[in-house]
Design a protein around this nucleic acid. Structure first.
Lengths: 238, 238
DNA sequence: GTTTTCATGTAACCCGTTACATGATTCA
DNA sequence: TGAATCATGTAACGGGTTACATGAAAAC
């Protein structure tokens, strides 16, 4: 349950909502723009697209055959297939966007949800952020308890590992706190009455109330060469 | 490749090196002491134990039948099975401990390796830490590049997600730096000549040179109740 | 005395990757 | 013209979880 493939469907719909694309590019975007998800393989992506089409959420369109559009229409030429979101697809995606069930704040789900916050209503954003936070606090509580129980029996390295793990979670909680605060501030600023219209900011919209951080590309370039051994396993695609 | 189950085998051998245990307890330790790995199910653990036995690395011993040891020996009574590391098993584990191949610094592998640093030679520890660090720096480089390429096209939330992701990695790099520094300092302190004997500190040993952090259980107890919705999916076991 | 927790196991299933097959387009 | 990249697909395989079956010990 809580199928990982659900995340894929969601992300695909979300990306296609912005603009039609073919599978190959879709996959790239899945890794870069939404850098979070570790790459899905084509063996997963294409079948997924198929089912989305079968559900009527996407339609396949003949891709731009840039060189000779004529030849393309002749023999069973395999051309680019561009996927476009249908009206039902859009509707479905919007529904997914509004869900706030418990899985919305599981690690990978959460990242996917967050990536599309720009198209999510503020109220939903709040619920997801708060859900995630309480999920993490729960986890922290467990870690603390378990640590308290076993502390003396653990050697220094295990302890250090534990410590670092907890600190990571604490850090994410603080991050969420900032985000939640900003969301709240954003709402307060606008004094939105009960009937205020849902936001309508396109892709380029200024999502309100994000905490202003020092520039996204923080610390400077790589300080040249640690002696660390090179890692040949760089390429994901090949 | 880089099978996740390899991690299991490694961790099992490592835990059993400290003391014999039965499967059930083993699994608990896998989640708590080495809190890192997300739980393996019994469906994975028991078969794994079987193969380890088949390899001659473990032997099954009749568990302590505390109440009536007599009855146990009678009818095919299914008793606790305690697994104990054999000499070959120990040897094998020690060999695994000394490996420093590229997979030693993949996320989950690394955590497992680190968890047993107390039994790892300092030189190997260094190589693993440095390998991990360069792996992460590589990753950072990619993230920076991809971010630079797509920056303007991304909305604020996606950007924020990216930023937070990068910061997490940067944070781990800093952590590794501290650890490496400590390891180095530890070695320097001891002025170990070329022929210095391998360390021989038991489970309780003071692993040298860990950076001293404010107490492991950082920040205070849970500030009572955020309004966040409760999450019924707490229990892993059931 | 019945519910929980401890304890061991297996088989079916789900899901994603790997590896392969195929072909178009671009670049050297 | 041949290599690299773009592009779409599928079948087999691997590996881990879920769900189930079974039963002892402890707690209530």
């Amino acid at each position: 349950m809580s199928r990982r493939s659900g995340i894929l469907e969601f992300a695909v719909l979300g990306l296609l909502r912005e603009s039609p694309m073919h599978g190959y590019e879709l996959r790239k975007r899945l890794n870069t723009s939404l850098g979070i998800f570790r790459a899905f393989s084509y063996g997963t992506l294409y079948p997924c697209l198929k089912t989305l089409v079968a559900n009527g959420w996407l339609i396949e369109e003949p891709g731009s055959a840039p060189e000779d559009a004529l030849a393309a229409s002749l023999a069973g030429r395999r051309a680019k297939i561009v996927y476009r979101l249908t009206a039902e697809g859009k509707e479905h995606f919007e529904e997914l966007l509004s869900h706030t069930g418990p899985d919305a704040w599981e690690d990978e789900h959460f990242a996917a949800r967050f990536a599309f916050f720009g198209q999510t209503e503020r109220e939903v954003r709040m619920r997801v952020l708060e859900g995630r936070r309480s999920r993490l606090e729960e986890r922290l509580e467990k870690m603390r308890a378990s640590l308290a129980r076993t502390r003396e029996r653990l050697d220094d390295y295990t302890l250090e590992l534990q410590r670092h793990g907890m600190e990571s979670v604490e850090r994410e909680v603080r991050w969420l706190n900032e985000l939640i605060e900003s969301e709240r501030a954003g709402r307060d600023q606008r004094r939105s009455g009960p009937g205020s219209p849902a936001e309508q900011e396109g892709t380029s919209g200024e999502a309100d109330g994000l905490p202003r951080h020092r520039d996204a590309a923080s610390s400077g370039g790589t300080p040249p060469g640690h002696p660390g051994p090179p890692d040949p396993s760089a390429d994901t695609t090949k």
